[in-house]
Amino acid sequence: MKRIGITGQNGFVGTHLFNKVSLLKEEYLLIPFSRSYFDSETALADWVKECDVIVHLAAVNRDPDPQVLYDTNLALIQKLLKALNMAGNSPHVIFSSSTQEERDNLYGRSKKTGRGLLEEWAGNNQASFTGMVIPNVFGPFGKPFYNSVIATFCHQLCNGLSPKIDQDGFLKLIYVDELAEEIINVIRNVNNDAAYEVRSTSESYVSEILLRLMQFKRLYLEQGIFPELPDKFSINLFNTFRSYIDHRTYFPFKLKQHADNRGVFVEMIKLEVGGQVSFSTTHSGITRGNHFHTRKIERFLVIKGKAVIQLRRYNTKEVLNFELDGNEPSYVDMPVWYTHNIKNIGEEELYTIFWINEFFDPEDPDTYFETVQNGF
């Protein structure tokens, strides 16, 4: 069992990689990292000594002073190199560089220089080293105005702000979960390429991305319609957009009831995309679910009875609670990486409609069991 350490494990890419590795408990043991280790030579060396693989993600991406950014990123690498020498072991070091290496900016230079220093250390110590040159990364939970323009656009659109494009560039992109899988493949199949170019999985102009995101806002956020998602990039972009919605204020979304002398008519789910619709009945006091998905898009809609739906983002503590009543039909959508359940809190049978954007595949279920309340 390889022991994996990730510097910057609480950052954007680090969080996704940490979570992905944590699902592979039979292959890997995670050695938790604290940013405070960079303030203590002994603590950092002790941590290094425990690792068979170190993924160095810790870095500053933006700073008002580019020189501070450059100096900080080089200082982190120099501290890691000193700890490696103090520890006396030679783990496989994986470094996240950037395609900005070739640009005339201090961030790119900090990445290129740092990659060279780590390559030199590996050569002097007969160690494995992989320098991953990575394109633009996007995905759920990125920090707006910091991690990517997509994170910024999603944040603005979900908070009533108007995004603006300063310069319409052409972006080569990789989804953060795809990058995490790429890094895990490098861990699994040791790659000694000091300049390993990670291929982008999609390409688009900034203006085209913004148009798609604005469509998501118009259809999904304002009308509750699932937009057409013709390819993997569209699904990844939509799941990224959904992660910026404040569930506490947007859900449960109550549906309009059309009543006349015949009864009531309710439009449940409007789709520009396919998938599967199911329903369940649940006895009083019974809980269903307690699992999460990393790519699937899902809606729970209560049409009879009383329920509480609970959500908790994987490897975090906060639990979101939503009460739904079939007398006022309403739904809650499940974000990716949020474990969720539904419990019948009424005395009568609970009727729930479920929609998910893909059929269940036992060979690739994308379903990970984790209790909402006691999983952390």
Score class of each variant (00 low, 15 high):
residue 343 K to D: 06
residue 210 L to F: 10
residue 174 I to Y: 00
residue 372 V to K: 11
residue 293 H to C: 00
residue 241 F to Q: 05
residue 268 M to H: 14
residue 200 S to F: 12
residue 342 I to W: 01
residue 277 V to L: 14
residue 131 G to T: 10
residue 87 A to H: 05
residue 328 E to I: 10
residue 20 K to D: 08
residue 317 K to I: 11
residue 120 E to S: 14
residue 56 H to L: 01
residue 97 S to E: 02
residue 282 T to Y: 05
residue 359 F to Q: 14
residue 1 M to A: 15
residue 263 G to V: 07
residue 205 Y to M: 11
residue 308 V to D: 11
residue 167 Q to W: 08
residue 158 C to T: 14
residue 194 A to S: 12
residue 251 F to W: 08
residue 322 F to L: 03
residue 353 I to L: 14
residue 128 S to P: 00
residue 172 K to L: 03
residue 246 D to N: 15
residue 156 Q to R: 10
residue 33 F to P: 07
residue 164 K to L: 14
residue 216 F to A: 05
residue 191 N to G: 04
residue 310 Q to M: 08
residue 236 N to M: 05
residue 161 L to R: 13
residue 354 F to G: 07
residue 169 G to R: 12
residue 133 V to N: 01
residue 170 F to C: 04
residue 166 D to S: 09
residue 203 E to K: 10
residue 231 D to R: 01
residue 313 R to A: 07
residue 355 W to K: 09
residue 236 N to A: 07
residue 212 R to G: 01
residue 101 E to A: 06
residue 368 Y to W: 12
residue 127 A to D: 04
residue 60 V to Q: 13
residue 374 N to Y: 09
residue 164 K to H: 10
residue 213 L to E: 09
residue 191 N to I: 03
residue 105 N to P: 08
residue 266 V to Y: 01
residue 374 N to L: 08
residue 202 S to D: 04
residue 89 N to P: 02
residue 145 F to G: 08
residue 244 Y to C: 03
residue 112 K to P: 00
residue 148 S to V: 10
residue 356 I to E: 10
residue 142 G to Y: 03
residue 10 N to R: 11
residue 248 R to D: 15
residue 278 S to M: 06
residue 134 I to F: 02
residue 181 E to I: 03
residue 88 G to E: 09
residue 109 R to E: 13
residue 95 F to C: 05
residue 35 R to P: 08
residue 267 E to A: 04
residue 174 I to M: 01
residue 190 V to W: 05
residue 279 F to T: 10
residue 101 E to S: 05
residue 27 E to K: 15
residue 207 S to F: 03
residue 3 R to Q: 12
residue 126 Q to L: 13
residue 354 F to H: 08
residue 85 N to A: 12
residue 116 G to V: 04
residue 352 T to P: 00
residue 244 Y to R: 06
residue 209 I to E: 00
residue 218 R to W: 03
residue 25 K to G: 08
residue 189 N to G: 06
residue 80 L to R: 07
residue 205 Y to V: 03
residue 200 S to V: 02
residue 71 D to A: 11
residue 360 F to Y: 15
residue 155 H to M: 10
residue 367 T to K: 14
residue 327 N to G: 12
residue 337 W to F: 11
residue 116 G to M: 04
residue 113 T to Q: 12
residue 144 P to V: 09
residue 339 T to S: 15
residue 121 W to H: 13
residue 216 F to R: 05
residue 101 E to C: 09
residue 62 R to P: 02
residue 103 R to F: 12
residue 167 Q to S: 15
residue 174 I to C: 00
residue 87 A to Q: 10
residue 281 T to A: 05
residue 316 T to E: 13
residue 183 I to R: 04
residue 318 E to W: 00
residue 55 V to R: 02
residue 219 L to S: 11
residue 81 L to M: 14
residue 129 F to N: 02
residue 89 N to L: 04
residue 192 N to G: 13
residue 341 N to H: 09
residue 157 L to N: 05
residue 227 P to K: 07
residue 361 D to F: 03
residue 153 F to Q: 06
residue 252 P to M: 08
residue 161 L to P: 02
residue 194 A to I: 00
residue 236 N to Y: 04
residue 167 Q to E: 15
residue 111 K to V: 02
residue 289 G to C: 11
